[in-house]
Design a protein around this nucleic acid. Structure first.
Lengths: 222, 222
DNA sequence: TTTACTTTTTAGATTTGCCTAAATTTTATT
DNA sequence: AATAAAATTTAGGCAAATCTAAAAAGTAAA
């Protein structure tokens, strides 16, 4: 059976999905930028996606994925992340070398292949970057969001939001190398002043005050 | 890095390689037939392959792969067979289910990926159909084998390759419980139609037509 | 060897996905 | 509110890979 959608369409769906999730809104320019292409090309493709009912789109009025489009996007993401897991865990690639290869592998169409791969890998919940892997029905285990004070000790989590976004706060976080998407875990909590020792993935440990901790939100798997 | 050649070009190279190996000569019509396409489309592609020096071609005068074309074809075949091996040995697919999926996987471009996969699989010498896997330099060990018709009576031998790998053939062999590695011996040969009675190790005897026998290759000790 | 048949190639379209340049619509700024 | 700027879409093209129909070249047969 031939693939239902071209690789190109799949890439658009995936990009739109990501922008929707992370920025809330999506614009033609955002998509063009994400896919390293031109706004005019994006407009062309949006029309095709609309014609296939994968996208809700009215010209000049913005757009978002339909339920079907969302489903397709989730399957691509599932494939991408399972292949990344395979590359790192079985073929011993570094976690920073696998993205490009997975970009190609994610377009292999066989659903049976991906389900068997999933099984072979032991049904992993997250990819090597800590992002969740949707299951074969496209369900995610939606990560739980809490502030740093309430993150259980030794749980790896990903920074997903900042409460106080003042320049001072951002300067402090920048200095400590903490930003959106940073992966970290709380190693120690001092009862005296509620300060924390936080280990930042692939870096060393920093100390964070209660005030700061209350304003850093993270996601983690249960 | 982007793929050097389109999937389509790779498919042409592979088809031409196979026709060259098995029939000696290759014609425009053969290629069209092999790839389920039209002769006019083949002519178009031959020109492109010639322009890229992958093919030696003069119109109306026949054609064959250049050294470069041959090298590319062997790399595709390497990838195809390694993926088939992976699908059967690691993901537990049946050896008759893997061809289609491997047709897609063989176009993934990363050379590093395929070399690591090779290593992960333990550098297999043949794919699940018994066909040899070229090494990363494109060399292969051509296994010495005879077809069943030429196997001496009462010699125990091991199935090492299948010529015609159509779904129909594979279905028939599957039904008779003959697969790669099966050990068997020819008990009787009927001169009338060249059909054979074949005793399969640890099982009972089956009858095999000349047509099938010609396409089952075996290895045995002298 | 001349005609008939087959094979191969050309000519001209089509589809997909992309492009540039120009027009249009929306948004932001005086 | 008028105008400038930015975002988006249209218009018109291009390249890859395919197709059909027709022409050309090669092969075979009377």
């Amino acid at each position: 059976m031939p693939a239902k959608y071209s690789s190109s369409k799949e890439n658009y769906l995936k990009a739109i999905f990501h922008l929707q999730e992370t920025h809330g809104t999506v614009t033609t320019n955002d998509v063009a930028n994400e896919l390293q292409t031109r706004p005019a090309s994006v407009t062309d493709m949006l029309k095709k996606l609309k014609a296939q009912k994968l996208l809700l789109y009215e010209k000049y009025k913005g757009f978002k994925l339909s339920n079907d489009g969302r489903k397709v996007a989730l399957q691509i993401i599932r494939k991408h992340r399972l292949w990344e897991y395979f590359l790192v865990e079985k073929l011993r690639f570094g976690w920073d070398e696998v993205h490009e290869i997975a970009e190609e592998l994610e377009h292999i169409s066989s659903k049976q292949l991906i389900d068997r791969l999933d099984e072979f890998l032991g049904f992993p919940k997250t990819d090597p970057h800590g992002d969740p892997i949707p299951d074969s029905q496209g369900r995610w285990v939606q990560a739980k969001q809490v502030d740093l004070l309430n993150l259980p000790l030794n749980k790896v989590a990903e920074v997903s939001g900042i409460g106080d976004q003042s320049a001072e706060m951002l300067e402090l976080l920048g200095h400590k190398n903490i930003g959106l998407g940073t992966r970290l875990e709380v190693k120690k909590k001092f009862a005296f002043d509620n300060s924390l020792e936080v280990k930042i993935k692939n870096q060393h440990t920093v100390t964070i005050s209660e005030h700061v901790a209350k304003n850093v939100f993270v996601k983690y798997d249960e």
